[in-house]
């Protein structure tokens, strides 16, 4: 467990209520409003995506929305920066393989 329960300077952290979300279909718990990446790290998940060309794993690097290494598919939407996207109850989060496809295919149909 990577959550800090008692910090010597900051004391306890004011976190949102505990909510359930799914990673690749598997139920997990996190705190509402914290970045998805924080909830995943607390749950021991480091691999957020596999790259398009070499199928290499990638995770968090900058944690402030700058580098886009941590993107995942969130509720069907690819390329979501999980280090800045707040966690909400019932979110469907998927490991992103490659670049991701558009959610609404075939606009003319």
């Amino acid at each position: 467990m990577n959550r800090i329960s008692e910090h010597p300077v900051l004391g306890t952290f004011a976190k949102g209520r505990s909510v359930v979300f799914r990673l690749d279909g598997r139920a997990m718990e996190g705190c509402e409003g914290e970045p998805i990446a924080a909830a995943l790290r607390a749950a021991g998940v480091l691999v957020h995506r596999q790259t398009a060309r070499r199928n290499e794993p990638r995770g968090v690097f900058c944690a402030i929305g700058r580098c886009t290494d941590c993107v995942m598919v969130v509720d069907g939407r690819p390329n979501v920066r999980t280090c800045v996207e707040p966690l909400r109850e019932g979110m469907q989060i998927q490991t992103q393989y490659g670049l991701g496809t558009l959610r609404h295919e075939g606009a003319g149909s």
Binding site: N79, L99, G100, T101
Partner: peptide
């Protein structure tokens, strides 16, 4: 330029 997606 947009973000990258699978070829369309």
């Amino acid at each position: 330029v947009t973000e990258a997606r699978e070829p369309m």
